[in-house]
Amino acid sequence: MAKNVHADQRFIIGLINNDTIVVNDIYKRCAHKIKSWITFNNGTEDDAADIFQEALMDIYRQGKYKSLELTCPFEPYLLLICKRKWLNQIKKRSILPVTNLEEDLLHIGEDTFAQADELENQSRQSDLFYGAFEKLGARCQEIIAWSMKGEAQEKVAEALGVTYGYLRKKKSECMASLIKMVQSIKMEE
């Protein structure tokens, strides 16, 4: 059965040919999503930049030397590779066995495409959340950002210079506003 090459194969060709326009487009479309995902999963911005570069190099090598042909959209494929690379990095830091990503890329099955679709959906959800989050007031953004770090609320209240009771009430109001914004954005789509 012949594979249907996806239109996003142009990104692979652009990487192989070092096409500046295509490479810039990849960065514009994907870099912030990968940075958000990695920093949300205990990484730093530097980690995200390294993982992004490594993933692009892997895709470049797969395209140039192993004739990689995309049968799914490029963006979720790249996000999936970055996600796997970051999880492998976490395993290395924990001194756990690490899978060999180069070999994994040669055996892409249907489950990989399902994961890529799921990752693309997560990415859309993340974009929706951040879009609504950016519309919140500065104080709400600050409270939610602190709360997402997993700190004890007493510590957060102290750091923000407010009482514990005020923080709980304000956080509840901010989260309600955020949820309302996310729902209204979803309804507009």
Results as ranks from 00 to 15, higher is better:
F113E: 15
I34H: 04
Y77N: 00
E54V: 07
F52R: 03
N100E: 15
D117A: 13
E75F: 02
Q115C: 14
Q125W: 00
G43S: 07
L78D: 00
T112D: 15
Q62K: 09
Y65A: 05
D104L: 02
I59K: 05
D117C: 11
L87C: 03
Q122C: 13
T44Q: 08
A48W: 00
L70I: 01
Q62V: 04
L96N: 10
G109D: 12
C82Y: 00
K33Y: 07
S67G: 10
R124H: 10
T71L: 07
R61L: 04
E103Y: 06
L56D: 01
L96K: 13
T112H: 12
G63C: 01
L79E: 12
L80M: 11
Q115G: 13
E54M: 06
A49V: 08
N88F: 08
T44H: 06
A55K: 09
E103I: 05
E69I: 06
K66R: 14
S36A: 13
Y60G: 01
S123K: 11
R124F: 11
L87A: 07
C82D: 02
D58C: 11
F40R: 11
H107L: 06
L70W: 02
I51W: 06
Q125G: 02
I81L: 14
P73R: 07
A114N: 14
P73N: 05
G43T: 02
M57Q: 12
I59V: 14
I51K: 05
Q53C: 12
E75H: 01
V98P: 09
P97C: 06
C72V: 13
R124N: 11
P73H: 03
K85N: 06
F113Q: 13
E110H: 14
D111Q: 13
L80D: 02
A114C: 13
G43Q: 05
W37R: 00
E118L: 15
K33L: 15
N42E: 12
K83V: 07
I108K: 11
I95A: 11
I81V: 14
I81N: 03
E103V: 06
T44A: 08
I34S: 08
Q89S: 12
R84N: 08
D104E: 11
I81D: 00
L70Y: 01
L96W: 10
V98F: 04
L70R: 00
D111Y: 09
S36G: 08
T99C: 03
F74W: 03
T112I: 08
E118M: 15
K66V: 08
A48C: 05
S94E: 14
F52S: 06
K85R: 13
N41C: 09
A48I: 00
I108E: 08
I51L: 10
N42G: 04
Q53N: 15
L78N: 02
K85S: 02
E54G: 00
D46Y: 07
A55E: 10
E69D: 09
P76M: 03
M57D: 14
G43R: 04
S36V: 07
Y77A: 03
N41H: 10
W86G: 00
N121V: 15
E75R: 00
S123A: 15
L80G: 03
N41W: 04
I59C: 07
W37M: 05
M57L: 15
A114V: 14
I59F: 05
Y60P: 03
S94P: 06
P76Y: 04
C82Q: 01
S123P: 10
G109C: 05
D117W: 08
L105S: 08
L96I: 09
E110M: 13
L56E: 07
L101Q: 02
E103T: 08
I51M: 10
A48F: 02
P73Q: 06
